[in-house]
Amino acid sequence: MSRTRLRWNGDAATGAIREAAARGLLLGAEHVLAASRQRVPINEGTLERSGATSVDESTMTATVSYDTPYARRVHEDMTARHSPGRSSKYLESVLPETAGEVQALIAAQIRRALG
């Protein structure tokens, strides 16, 4: 009878998966930011340049934001006229369109960590 010894490093595996998921969240948020920058209304470019991403690893949530005093107003004003290809809801509108790609980015990072 042969014996096999198995060492289970569950905590290390869980930690590696969590770190990979956080990296994937950041990549996904950056992807959403890039897509929304293609739609953000441009006057001087200040709003577009104010876009940023962040990840809270404790809650595993990612944030995409625009940081100007008028970002919310421009995003929500459906009556404003913008250049072709630019629109209000510039962030909200890209979320459903990029969801699959964001999921794939997260999954790829997790697969890589388990590789």
Rank of each mutant, 00 (worst) to 15 (best):
A62M: 08
I106H: 07
S88M: 02
L47A: 06
G51T: 05
L105I: 07
K89V: 04
V74D: 01
Y90A: 03
E97F: 01
A62H: 05
T61M: 13
R18Q: 12
A80Y: 04
T68Q: 10
L26Y: 08
A107V: 06
S87Y: 03
V64M: 08
R18Y: 06
Y70S: 06
R23C: 02
A21L: 09
N9I: 03
G100K: 05
G28V: 05
A104K: 14
I106M: 12
R72H: 09
P41N: 06
L27W: 09
L26Q: 14
E30P: 00
M60G: 02
H75M: 04
L95M: 13
S58P: 00
N43C: 00
M1S: 12
G24Q: 08
Q103S: 15
G24C: 07
T53M: 07
K89C: 05
A104W: 08
S83D: 14
K89E: 14
D67K: 12
S87E: 13
S65L: 10
E92K: 11
Q109H: 11
R18L: 08
I42V: 15
E101A: 11
S2W: 05
L105Q: 11
V94W: 01
E57R: 15
E19P: 00
R18D: 11
N43V: 13
T63I: 13
M60Q: 15
L26P: 01
R112C: 00
G85E: 07
T79R: 15
I42P: 00
S65M: 12
L91A: 06
E19H: 08
A29D: 05
L33S: 01
A99M: 10
R73H: 10
D67I: 04
S58Q: 14
T68N: 07
A104L: 11
S54T: 12
S36P: 01
L95I: 13
P41F: 03
S87G: 08
L25N: 04
I110M: 13
N9L: 11
A71Q: 05
L91P: 01
G24H: 08
E44V: 10
P84T: 06
Q103P: 00
A21M: 10
A21D: 03
A62L: 06
R37S: 02
R49Q: 15
T79I: 04
R111D: 14
D77M: 03
L114H: 04
A99W: 07
E76H: 07
I17T: 11
A20Q: 07
E92A: 12
S2G: 09
M78I: 15
S54E: 14
A62W: 04
A104C: 05
G51V: 02
T59R: 14
P96H: 06
A22N: 11
R72Q: 09
G85N: 10
S2Y: 09
S87P: 01
G28T: 08
D56Q: 11
N43Y: 09
E57H: 07
S93C: 05
V102P: 02
R72A: 13
L114S: 09
A71K: 05
T63W: 09
V55K: 04
A35W: 01
V102G: 03
L95F: 06
I17Q: 04
R39P: 00
Y70F: 11
H75Y: 05
G115L: 09
G10L: 14
K89H: 15
R86Q: 14
A113S: 11
